[in-house]
């Protein structure tokens, strides 16, 4: 039986998967993810894809807000930039989907870099407002730069394909999403345990001391903005290729708030937390619609009350987590893990 967690050398202590148990459960989870599309129905796969895009976006926002401490209210705008960039590259420039996604990430990173520039001068609430401006500037561009974006009618995007094989259903697209999520999460997890990630956290915790350590605030804050926007851009590009259409309505201000809610509910400054948050926040509207179906059966007419509750529920969740569990779902997860590490003899 397990009696604790002991390590004999530094290599083991620096490892990303800290014990055989972690590897075992992760392996099992991976097998589940691989088998999932064979067992699930189309609706479940649709949700799974949405969760995947949300995970990528949330991990990106968490790198910026949770790790570097720069609050951004314009995350949806960067998703939009990536989405439009890939849509335009595919439909107008004839790029393949596979090339357009990383390029969309780069375009979005460039946008993030520019929006991040004020972060060198302004902090906290003021930076919030500055990023909020980006949300509306890009929103305006999506609608009014009609020659490029087709305005409110949007752009239709052909599904990605390899040779004759088209990723045109939820089930097929799932594989693209799965691989992207694994790459995105793996990269972020490694980044935060190496030089750059530590520098991000140093800036968050005490920028003055970070500078003494030789951390170039200019470079690292902007890197954080760029990397975070890259994630958003990739998430946006994947999302619209999945939906096969992009319109300005996909990137409302509320989406930025949803992403913030994801990382707050999941856990700021934790990659795992972003994943929990993304899953949780994607499932909330689902649960609500299931709930409204039930209500419809039991008390016809009342179901219309449930759907608009989405925003209210989001609000309550954010406030609730900030008050009762400021470290988010990941902290609950850690407590459960701690309980089971020495279970059943935890003394």
């Amino acid at each position: 039986m397990r009696s604790g967690d002991f390590k004999e050398d530094y290599i083991k202590d620096e490892a990303i998967f800290q014990s055989v148990f972690v590897k075992f459960w992760l392996g099992l989870f991976f097998v589940f993810l691989v088998l999932f599309p064979f067992a699930a129905n189309i609706h479940m796969l649709y949700i799974a894809n949405l969760i995947g895009f949300a995970v990528i976006g949330a991990v990106g926002l968490n790198l910026l807000t949770g790790f570097t401490g720069q609050i951004s209210l314009g995350h949806a705008a960067f998703l939009g930039v990536g989405a439009y960039a890939s849509a335009i590259l595919i439909t107008r420039c004839g790029f393949s989907f596979w090339l357009s996604v990383p390029l969309a990430g780069l375009v979005s990173a460039l946008a993030g870099f520019l929006i991040g520039l004020p972060s060198l001068r302004v902090k906290g609430l003021y930076l919030c407002i500055a990023t909020l401006a980006s949300q509306f500037i890009f929103g305006f561009i999506f609608v009014h730069w009609e020659s490029m974006t087709n305005g409110i009618t949007g752009i239709h995007i052909p599904p990605p394909s390899i040779g004759d094989f088209k990723f045109d259903t939820e089930r097929k697209f799932y594989w693209i999403t799965l691989v992207s999520v694994i790459l995105a999460v793996g990269y972020a997890r490694n980044l935060v345990r190496s030089k750059m990630g530590r520098a991000f956290m140093a800036i968050r915790d005490r920028d003055l001391a970070a500078e003494i350590m030789g951390i170039n605030l200019f470079r690292y804050k902007l890197s954080s903005f760029a990397i975070s926007s890259f994630y958003a851009g990739v998430a946006g590009a994947l999302w619209v290729s999945f939906l096969k259409v992009v319109t300005p309505e996909h990137f409302p201000f509320l989406l930025s708030i949803e992403y913030l809610a994801m990382i707050i509910v999941g856990g700021l400054g934790s990659v795992l937390g972003s994943i929990f948050g993304a899953i949780f926040m994607t499932l909330v509207p689902e649960t609500l619609s299931v709930l409204s179906d039930i209500v419809k059966e039991m008390a016809p007419g009342w179901e219309n009350l449930i759907i608009p509750f989405k925003e209210v529920v989001f609000g309550f969740l954010i406030v609730g987590f900030l008050v009762f569990e400021p470290h988010g779902l990941v902290e609950i997860w850690n407590r459960i893990k701690k309980f089971f590490i020495l279970w059943p003899f935890s003394y």
Partner: peptide, 15 residues
Amino acid sequence: LGRHIHLKSGFLSGG
């Protein structure tokens, strides 16, 4: 973090 300036990994190699 004290060793920051002596480390070489960047955003690609670190990730």
